[in-house]
């Protein structure tokens, strides 16, 4: 076996993936960051909070969920801890929000990564929406049951 040849094959094979990611992923992150810096993030997250309500979340829970969707789980965690401390959300609500964010975060960057390497964009997005709605129903059923 020619180890060097295999090494070179692996390195050259990975180049196309890296180029496609550079072209697709980096601009998307730049746009997201510009939106955040300009304050539009806040407005957009508030606007799309209605989507979170589609997932059976309450009004207060929907902002951290939208942040988790747009900016990832760590940011959602920060918002959630802040909301809990300032009393916007009670213990039960923040647990519910954590459960929602747990399965359903990274709405943009994660799917894009897979689309770049060949997944179907419409099918991936559609499947994720269906799953988020089902998950929301399940989680809120439990919430109602315990009240």
């Amino acid at each position: 076996m020619d180890w060097i040849a295999i090494l070179l094959e692996g390195l050259s094979g990975s180049v196309w993936v890296l180029v496609r990611m550079l072209v697709v992923l980096v601009p998307i992150i730049v746009v997201l960051e510009m939106l955040r810096e300009s304050g539009w993030l806040e407005r957009i997250s508030n606007k799309i909070s209605f989507i979170a309500r589609l997932f059976s979340a309450s009004k207060g829970e929907s902002f951290p969920i939208a942040v988790g969707g747009l900016f990832g789980m760590t940011n959602a965690c920060g918002v959630l801890i802040d909301h809990k401390r300032s009393g916007v959300l009670n213990k039960k609500e923040s647990r519910h929000a954590a459960e929602m964010v747990g399965i359903n975060h990274g709405w943009i960057d994660d799917p894009i990564l897979f689309v770049v390497i060949g997944a179907s964009l419409p099918i991936t997005v559609f499947a994720k929406i269906v799953i988020a709605i089902l998950w929301g129903k399940l989680v809120s059923l439990r919430k109602k049951g315990k009240q």
Partner: peptide
Amino acid sequence: VGIISALGLGWKEITILAV
């Protein structure tokens, strides 16, 4: 993503893995 791109799978498999 690194592994999938090296495996050379079809779009159906990649989509299922993505979800």
